[in-house]
Amino acid sequence: MSDRPSILVPVRVLEGESIPEGVPELLTNAHVVLLGYHVVPDQTATDQARDQFEDQATRRLEDFTAILEHAGASVESQLVFTHDGQTTIDRMTEEHDCLAVLIPNATRPLENVLVAIRGIVGIDRFVRLVSGLFATVDVDVTLYHVAGADEIDADVETLLEGVATRLSEEGVPPDTIDMQVSRDGSPQESIVDASDNYDTIVMGESDPSVSTFLFGMTADQVANEFLGPVLVIQHGDPDDTEETDSE
């Protein structure tokens, strides 16, 4: 089995957010970087907010850590009071070298995972994440690609078969891997349309900043319409192209 993939799980710890149902089981084989954060108004010093709310936030973070560890995940947690939640998420993702950020919506018992493959860039990170999380779990993995007008069927087949081969080499049973191709609509619309029969989506970020995905239009389009958890794989090193605390 592959090493545990590091996944950032951001939770607005003082605003009623928690670890949704099904998420601990999804992260059984992960190393979770649990970010409890609270966005402080610009006119309030972050140290002042920490002095006032740290004990309450720490207790909630400890409860969430226990839930994830009970499910099997390894967890390191950090509490941050910040003026900018988006910047904090980006910084923590980079500092902890996280493969992905989780949009932690609730999910039913995990049976089917939709893995949206865009192209050859970053395939190594997809393989590491999917094999690390699901190689020893009884789930079906569908490799899904939205083909562009200039992509021929043979090239798409080569792309997806290459990913499937690498996943099987990393321990994902070949008979649990399926492949689907769409040529209709935008990638985001196609992913949402295809997601009805799936419990989790794995996809790459569509912008160099993960915060754009988490707080922008793409999140509304995918995570809100899908309503389940979305694992957003980070770009990583821009040269990596694979071939088949208070603030």
Rank of each mutant, 00 (worst) to 15 (best):
T93K: 13
V115W: 00
L61R: 09
L79Q: 01
A106R: 14
R59V: 08
L129Q: 10
S168G: 10
M203H: 12
V121T: 09
D184H: 13
L133Y: 10
F226V: 13
R125K: 12
L8H: 07
L160N: 04
D184F: 09
L114Y: 05
N105R: 12
Q48M: 14
E54C: 05
A194T: 04
V230P: 12
D240T: 09
E161W: 00
D196C: 06
M217A: 15
D55S: 11
V222Y: 02
C98F: 00
T165W: 08
V11H: 13
D184T: 12
P20D: 05
L102P: 00
P174A: 12
E25T: 03
P187K: 05
P5G: 08
E151W: 06
A219M: 10
L68M: 02
A45I: 05
A73D: 00
A164H: 02
D175T: 12
E25K: 04
P208M: 13
D239S: 11
I233K: 04
G132T: 05
A149V: 09
I201C: 07
Q48T: 15
V192S: 10
L227H: 15
S195L: 00
E161C: 05
V139D: 01
V222G: 06
E111P: 03
S18P: 01
L27C: 01
F134S: 09
D240N: 11
G171S: 02
S190D: 03
H96K: 11
F64V: 00
A45S: 13
T200I: 07
T165S: 12
S211C: 04
V156S: 06
I103M: 11
A164V: 00
F126L: 15
H235V: 10
T46F: 03
S18Y: 07
A66V: 07
D55W: 09
V172Q: 00
S2Y: 10
S195V: 00
G185Y: 02
E205V: 15
Y198D: 11
P238Y: 15
E170S: 12
G216S: 03
T165P: 02
P5W: 08
I191K: 01
P41Q: 11
G162Q: 01
Q86A: 15
G236K: 07
I89W: 04
F126R: 15
S2G: 14
V80T: 13
E21D: 02
P20K: 08
E151Q: 15
V127M: 09
I117P: 04
L227R: 13
A66P: 03
T212R: 14
L61E: 00
A71S: 15
S186G: 11
S190A: 14
T200M: 09
V210P: 01
S190R: 03
Y198L: 07
T44S: 12
A116W: 01
D207I: 08
A116H: 07
T82A: 05
A30R: 03
G216P: 02
